[in-house]
Each structure stands twice: as C-alpha cells, then as structure tokens.
Design a protein around this nucleic acid. Structure first.
Lengths: 218, 218
DNA sequence: AAGTCACCGTACCGTACGTTACGGTTCGGC
DNA sequence: GCCGAACCGTAACGTACGGTACGGTGACTT
C-alpha cells in the first residue's frame, strides 16, 4: 500500500515539475500556517486532489519530508576557488559566507522549515529535524571548512581544529538571531544591517584566529 | 466562563502547592512527549481530573503558559557583587555565566520548553514563544549587562554598546549548541566539556573586548 | 448528622483532520 | 472514436483530542 507510494518519490531523480509545484505550494503554506497546515489546505492550494498527494508522498510526514528536501535542493553552492588566496580574498569569502547565512536563517522559508524540524524532533519522528540540521548547519560547516583550511595553509589563519574554528565563526555570525526568530521575535534585519554584521563577525573571527604575523587586522 | 478560570491563576500569588505538583507533572510530560501531550495524559499523570485542569488553567494554552512561567520562576538568580572587581573576578563571573547558560540550554526541560515556544510562535498564539524568549535570552541579557558595564567601569573591558557586546558573548558561548539540540541532535555535553567551553568563550570574549592596557590575556 | 466544597474518575460531545473511496474529466496511444 | 491511466474535486470514514457534564468521595463547617 504505502510502499508503492513511498517508492514513487524515493526512487529515481527527484520530483517532477508538477510535483515541484505542489511542494512549492506546501512551502508557501508552511510559511503562512506553520505546522498546522492540513492536507486539505495543501490540496486546495496546489489544485490537486488529496488522493494524488497520498499517492505521491505516502502520508503527511512524507509530504513534509519531500518539501524540506526540495527546498534544500534549491540552495546551490558556488564553490570557493582556493587559488591566489590572500587576506583580502579570505576576508571577503568569510564575509560572503556570513551574510549569506544570515540571509538564509532570517528568511521566512528557513524559519518555517526550522520550526517544522524542531517540532518533529520533539516527537518520535526525528527525521525532519535531522534533515534540516544536515542541510543547514552541517552543510554550512562542510562548505566553510575548506576555506578555513585553505586560510591556514596560506598562513593567514591559525587554529588547531577546523570544526572548533568553524563553530566559533558560526557563533559570531548567528549570535542570538536564529533562536529569537524561531521564538517569534520581530527582528528586522535590513540588508545594510546584515552586511554590517557579516563584516563585524569576520573581523572578530580574524582577531581571534588571524595569523599574528604582520600587523593585526583589528 | 473562562474569565473565571483565568483569574483563578492569574490573580494573586502564584500556584498553590497542589497546582505546582500538576505543573511539574506537565513539565515531565513535556520532556517525554513534546508538544503532543494531551489533557487526558496530564490529568492521569498528575492524578487530577480534567475538570480541575480546566477550572484552574482555563484551557490547554493556559496550562502550557502556566507551566512555562512556573519553570521560569524556579530559576533563581544570585546577584553579582560589583565590589572589588578585578580581572580575575570578572573572568570567573563570565565563566560562571557561560557555564550556567550552557547547562540551562542543554537541559531536557529547557529543550522541551523551547520546542513548545517555537511551535507556538509559528501559530497565532505567539505568547508562549515571547515568554520563553523573555525568561531566557532576554533575562540573561539583563543579568549580564551590569557585569559587562561594571567591567567597563573598572577599565577591564572596552565596548561601545553593552547590548552588542552581550550578543557577541552569547554567540561565543552558545554557538550552534541550541539549534542542534532543538533539532534533535544528540549532543552530549559533559560537565568538563561545558566548563572548558565556558573558559574558551570567556577568553575569546576578553580577547575581543578586554582592555588593551597591559599584556593581553590571550 | 447534615450540608457544602473541592476534587477525582469517567463518560460523553463536537469537531477537526488524516486517510480512503469514488464519480467525473482530460489526455495520450491505438 | 475508444481505452486506460492519471488526475481533480468532493464526499465519506475513523479516530484522536479538546472541552464539558455528572456521579461519587473525602474533609471541613456548623
């Protein structure tokens, strides 16, 4: 019964165009309604039948899981070139990461998705939380660590453990922003504010982990 | 109808002993079951009737709100004495704050309560999220800022804005811990690990905001 | 001893929602 | 032009749960 439905999405190469439309509808509904969206509301918004929803995604959890993965797959990552790394390019890379990250975690979609992940992590179905974590926090770590290590290679950074250094950077960038937004704080982040925070966090990180050779940046 | 019920708890001096027992039961149930606890389960666990629950707390939201406030009221704050502040006492104060905070946010109770706050912040009832935020993040800020300002007064710290300085400290302490725990990551924080993190965060904060007079601490 | 009060346990009600079933429509293949 | 597959819209089913009603019991008052 459900086996067939699950396979329908799991096997092969991602959702079809029509399925993507449905998932985008779920995404919008998730932003508006949070976790209390109903299957009926999804069907209505996506102009599809509930029967189709169940056929494609198995059950409500399957639909949410597919939605989270669909959103995650939309975030494409420009690789960082490790050639010709100097302090200026390292600095701007870090600033770029910081502002990108702030923009992500303060977006409506991210907040809604993280909320869903949190509430599911509280019940038996831990999967959604794990997925959000994997595609969010850990994906960022995997992307940033090579940059940090290239910086160390080029003797621009000093640290023992890339993971620890990354977590410091993460803390300096995110601070209390994510928890405040998740808890419903109206935290208006302007473009200028985000860029300013990115610069500040990067400078602080360099003050802590920048190589002490030559005049310090701060 | 409900007016009477609400007043029963709101007016006057907090929950009675029996009501505290009930709220503690809710707390335990919240840790075990997350937000999907039912009123029936609460009644059974607390050995009281549902009728009594509704009489005392009005409705499900009232019960959860009372629970959050009850837990928050249990956290008592030792005031920090601002006399005879030197670098050593400032450092140990900061380390104390950091380790206390890490212990709080990694406790089962805090995780469960924050989860409830997050899910409620996603629906219309933003109150619970606001309360958690107020009793958590903002309460910490109010407690820590006087310490920071005393440190600046004593020319041990340098910063423009106490709020910004606090948020930096917050980021250095919490890093990715809270979001990982909320999303269900099994993050084992040992006593030694927490204390080590507190020391590291404090040293990093002093490196960023310690007064540059005399040899630097890092 | 009778009355009152607060409370427990449980049965009950209404509804919302996940899930399933079904009739009708479109569309591609023969 | 016909057939079946895929899909839409909607109705129907089952259940879980928030909220209410009610009978029963112990404690306290007079």
């Amino acid at each position: 019964m459900m086996l067939q439905a699950v396979t329908e999405m799991m096997e092969g190469d991602g959702p079809t165009a029509r399925q993507q439309d449905v998932l985008d509808a779920v995404l919008r509904l998730l932003v508006e309604e949070g976790d209390r969206l109903t299957m009926t509301a999804v069907a209505r918004r996506a102009s599809c039948s509930k029967e189709t929803l169940y056929k494609w995604f198995g059950d409500r959890d399957g639909l949410l899981t597919a939605t989270v993965q669909w959103q995650a797959s939309k975030v494409r990552v420009p690789p960082v070139d490790r050639n010709g790394l100097d302090l200026a390019s390292l600095t701007s890379s870090l600033e770029r990461f910081a502002s990108d990250w702030l923009r992500v975690i303060s977006s409506d979609t991210s907040i809604a998705l993280n909320r869903v992940g949190v509430v599911h992590a509280g019940s038996e179905k831990r999967d959604l939380g794990a997925i959000v974590l994997e595609r969010g926090r850990f994906a960022l770590g995997r992307r940033l660590k090579p940059v940090l290590e290239a910086g160390r290679e080029a003797e621009l950074l000093e640290f023992d453990d890339a993971e620890t250094a990354f977590r410091t950077f993460f803390g300096l960038v995110a601070r209390d922003v994510q928890i405040r937004l998740l808890l419903g704080d109206r935290l208006e982040l302007t473009e200028a504010g985000i860029d300013g925070d990115a610069v500040r966090a990067t400078q602080q990180f360099l003050a802590l982990h920048g190589a002490k050779t030559g005049p310090m940046a701060l």
